[in-house]
Design a binder for these strands. Structure first.
Length: 290
DNA sequence: CGTTGTTTATAGACTG
DNA sequence: CAGTCTATAAACAACG
C-alpha cells in the first residue's frame, strides 16, 4: 500500500488491482458495461499513472478480463457496430473486495459449474434470472441464428447467472441489469447508486489530481468495507437517468419494455459468454467471493 | 494492420 | 510453507 493521501496518482501506482480498476470503470458506466476501449479511457482519465506504458498494463487488463470469471463478455448487438464486445461484471462479484482492499480480493471470484452447484433455494431465482436473461437477449447476428458456427464458447448466460445467484437478482444484479438495459429494458435505478457506494471516489474524485475529495475515505479514498453493503439500505434510491453511454449509443434507440419475464421474446437467445472451462483452471472448484 | 480476446507461463506478494 | 492472487510478458487467433 503506497503512502496514503500524499500525492496524486500521477507519480505512483494507484492502490487498485486491474480487476478493481476494470470493475470501477464498468460500474461507473451508465450501462454497467463497457467496451474495452472505454475501460482504457476511464482508467487513463482518472489515473495518470496509466497514461504511460499502455502496452504493458492494457495487456494485463485484457488478460484479467479474459481470465477472471468476474467479468463477463456481452456481444454487441447488430445495431451497435464497433469492435470488440462489452464487458460487464458478474452479479456475484460485488463483494469481492469486501475487506476494503482493492489491491487484493478476499478470494478470486469463480463461477460454479452447474453440475456442481444446484442450490435448492436459489434454483428458482437462478432459473428465473436465466430465463429472463436468455429470453431477453436478442440474437447476435455475427453468431448466426441458432447455429453458432464460429462461436466457440459453450457457456450461455444461464450458465453464468444460474450458478449462484444469491438474491442478486432481487437486488438488481448488475450484469443482468446491464444486459437488460443494454437491450432497452428499464433497470432498477438504485443500481446506479451502487456505483457511488462501491467506488465513491469515482464520482467525487478530483479529475485532475485523481484524488478523492471526501475526507471520509481512507488512504486513496478507499473506504473501509466499501463493497459490503446492501445497496438499497445504505443508498437512497436516487433515480439516475439511464442515459445512453457514449459507447452504447444504440441503447437509447431501443424502446423501453416491460421487465416482466412473461414478455420475453421467445426467439431471443442469450449469448453472453465467458471463458471456456479449460481456462477456468480448476473449473469445478467452488470459489466465490463469499 | 491494429485492436480485441484467449491462453500459457512465470515471478512476486499475500494469506491461512 | 503451500496455496492463492496479482502483475507481467508473450504468442496467437479472430475480427473490423
Amino acid at each position: 500500500m503506497p503512502r496514503p493521501g500524499k500525492s496524486s496518482y500521477s507519480d505512483q501506482k494507484p492502490p487498485y488491482s486491474y480487476i478493481s480498476l476494470t470493475a470501477m470503470a464498468i460500474q461507473h458506466s451508465a450501462e454497467k458495461m463497457l467496451p474495452l476501449s472505454d475501460i482504457y479511457k476511464f482508467i487513463m482519465e482518472r489515473f495518470p499513472y496509466y497514461r504511460e506504458h499502455t502496452q504493458r498494463w492494457q495487456n494485463s487488463l485484457r488478460h484479467n478480463l479474459s481470465f477472471n470469471d468476474c467479468f463477463i463478455k456481452i456481444p454487441r448487438r447488430p445495431d451497435q457496430p464497433g469492435k470488440g464486445s462489452f464487458w460487464a461484471l458478474h452479479p456475484d462479484c460485488g463483494d469481492m473486495f469486501e475487506n476494503g482492499s482493492f489491491l487484493r480480493r478476499r478470494k478470486r471470484f469463480k463461477v460454479l459449474r452447474p453440475e456442481h452447484h444446484l442450490p435448492g433455494g436459489g434454483a428458482a431465482v437462478a432459473a428465473a434470472a436465466a430465463a429472463a436473461a436468455v429470453g431477453r437477449l436478442p440474437q447476435f447476428s455475427p453468431y448466426g441464428s441458432g447455429q453458432p458456427s464460429g462461436f466457440k464458447h459453450p457457456f450461455a448466460i444461464e450458465n453464468i447467472i444460474g450458478r449462484d445467484y444469491k438474491g442478486v437478482l432481487q437486488a438488481g444484479g448488475l450484469p443482468l441489469a446491464s444486459v437488460m438495459h443494454h437491450l432497452g429494458y428499464p433497470v432498477p435505478s438504485q443500481l446506479s447508486s451502487v456505483v457511488s457506494s462501491m467506488w465513491p471516489h469515482v464520482g467525487v474524485m478530483d479529475p485532475v489530481a485523481g484524488v478523492p475529495v471526501s475526507p471520509d475515505y481512507g488512504p486513496f479514498g478507499v473506504p473501509v468495507k466499501a463493497l459490503c453493503h446492501p445497496p438499497a439500505q445504505t443508498m437512497p434510491a436516487v433515480p439516475v437517468p439511464i442515459k445512453p453511454a457514449p459507447a452504447v449509443p444504440a441503447a437509447s434507440a431501443i424502446p423501453a419494455l416491460t421487465v416482466a419475464t412473461s414478455q420475453i421474446c421467445p426467439a431471443a437467445k442469450a449469448e453472453v459468454v465467458t471463458r471456456t472451462p479449460a481456462s477456468c483452471g480448476a473449473s469445478g472448484s467452488v470459489m466465490l467471493a463469499n
